[in-house]
């Protein structure tokens, strides 16, 4: 094969259409002719560079009634799951809502356990508060302790329990 024959086959080689029959002669000429090899390599690099440009082979188009619609996002772009699209603020809001709901549930439970309207406390002469009925004494003590454990005074509570009410 000479350089003129090589030129004839060059387009086929670049277009991936070189026949099996022509391939050996083509490759043999590439091996022996520096000029043709350089020409082939630069042409192949050109085609490869053009092919490497990122982009979709075709976009996804859908019909909505009488209109054609292309999605605004590039078709080859990474699809972000719906739950990641809101960003950080959505996460922060979710966490806040979860905490608020937890607190509300917790507070609600405490109300049902302890805070059923606690019997009105009566101020005694010695400054110790005592509930109006013995049955509510325990509830009042627990209520006081839970609301403010640091300040609840067990000794006063015991005295109050020992004293007769009314």
């Amino acid at each position: 094969m000479n350089c003129t024959d090589f030129e004839v086959l060059l387009a086929d080689a670049l277009g991936d259409e070189l026949s099996v029959a022509d391939r050996p002669a083509f490759e043999a000429h590439l091996a022996e002719c520096e000029k043709c090899r350089r020409e082939y390599e630069t042409a192949l690099r050109t085609v490869t560079t053009m092919r490497a440009l990122p982009g979709p082979a075709r976009a996804t188009v859908r019909r909505e009634g009488n209109r054609l619609v292309i999605d605004d996002r590039p078709p080859h772009a990474l699809r972000v799951p719906w739950w990641l699209r809101g960003g950080v603020f959505r996460y922060a809001a979710s966490i806040l809502i979860a905490f608020a709901a937890g607190y509300a549930v917790h507070a609600g439970l405490m109300m049902t356990e302890v805070g059923r309207p606690v019997d009105r406390l009566v101020q005694k002469d010695d400054g110790i508060e005592a509930p109006t009925s013995p049955n509510s004494l325990q509830r009042a003590l627990v209520h006081t302790h839970v609301r403010n454990p640091a300040r609840s005074d067990l000794a006063k509570c015991l005295i109050a329990m020992a004293k007769p009410t009314g």
Partner: peptide
């Protein structure tokens, strides 16, 4: 349409 978009985008 998809092909036209593909050529243009590339």
């Amino acid at each position: 349409t998809g092909e036209v978009y593909g050529w243009a985008y590339r």
